[in-house]
Each structure stands twice: as structure tokens, then as C-alpha cells.
Computed example of a mutant assay.
Amino acid sequence: MTEHYIKIKAVDLNNNCPECYSKEGLKLTFKQKFIETNFYKKITSDIKYEMDCLTCNTHIYPVKWTEDIERVFEYHKRGFNPKQASTHFKKATWLAITSGVFIALCITAVIIYSVL
């Protein structure tokens, strides 16, 4: 089972970086959790937010966010529409379900035939 986050939206911000004070290079990224197994693919409602400065190559943690960055983050968060949580079954799942139903029908037929 593999779990990873897919990037849904990335926004360039005009705020000053709390580390290098550059007004360019601050990027806010919205990511959503994606799970894939042999039987299904699933998009969850788990959202992750990341902020990086491309000028000084630093990950900006929420503890270091200024009030201005917080306001801009809340603004973009309200405008962010994540993908709807969903599950997609793969062929292996459908094969297992249909073969299980077929085996159950065969067993039921044998039991009914032996009782009569």
C-alpha cells in the first residue's frame, strides 16, 4: 500500500519570507492524500499545507508565519476546493467479488441438489 500526497494547488505569495525577508519566492502548496493498493485507489479528505521559500530554499513552518502570512493563508484556504474523497476499485477487486459470488452460487446449488 502506497500513501502519498498529490499537489492540488500551488500559489505564489507576495509576502516577505520570515527567514530571508525576500518578497519573491514564497510558495504555498495544497496537497491531498492519495492511497493506492492492489485492490483500490482512494482519494481521502486529508489535506496538507506547505509553505516554502524558493529564494533561500527553506521550508517555512506555521510557527514562523507572520500575521500577514496567516491572513493570506486563510484567504487562499477559503478559496481552495479539494478533490472529493472517493474510492475506485481495480479489476482485481471485481474479479475477487465475482469469483466469490460464483463459488457461493455453486455451493448453494450443490446443497440444494443434494437435499432434493
Rank of each mutant, 00 (worst) to 15 (best):
V115W: 11
R71Y: 04
H76N: 14
C20T: 08
K9Y: 10
I6Q: 11
H76E: 15
K48M: 14
A104Y: 08
A96F: 06
T93S: 08
Q32P: 04
T29D: 10
T29I: 15
K91F: 07
K90F: 00
I47F: 05
F34S: 09
I112L: 05
K31Q: 14
T87A: 01
C20I: 06
I43D: 03
D52L: 13
I35M: 10
I69K: 04
N81A: 06
K90Y: 03
G100T: 01
S45Y: 04
A10K: 14
S22G: 15
I103Q: 06
K83E: 13
H76I: 12
N81R: 15
H4G: 09
I97A: 09
M1P: 06
T87Y: 02
K7F: 01
Q84T: 15
V101T: 01
I35F: 01
F34N: 13
I97D: 02
G79K: 14
N16L: 14
G100Q: 01
N57F: 01
K90E: 05
A96I: 03
Y21N: 14
F39P: 01
I103W: 05
D52E: 13
F102P: 01
Q32F: 10
C106D: 04
V11N: 02
E74W: 00
V11F: 06
E19Y: 10
C20D: 09
L26E: 04
F80R: 03
P62S: 03
A96R: 05
V11L: 03
D12M: 10
I43T: 07
I107S: 12
N16E: 08
A104P: 00
K7N: 09
R78G: 11
I60T: 00
Q84W: 05
N81I: 15
C106P: 00
I112Q: 01
E3I: 12
N14G: 12
T37P: 03
E50Q: 13
I6L: 15
K83W: 01
A96S: 13
I107E: 08
I69L: 07
L54V: 12
Y40C: 10
I8R: 09
H76S: 07
T29Y: 00
V101M: 03
W94N: 07
L26R: 05
V63C: 10
K27E: 09
N16Y: 04
S99E: 02
A85G: 13
N81H: 09
R71N: 11
Q84M: 06
V11Y: 00
I43K: 01
N14W: 05
K83I: 10
T108V: 00
Y40E: 12
T44Y: 03
L28D: 05
A104Q: 02
L54H: 13
W65K: 07
K27W: 02
N16T: 02
I111G: 06
F73S: 03
H4N: 11
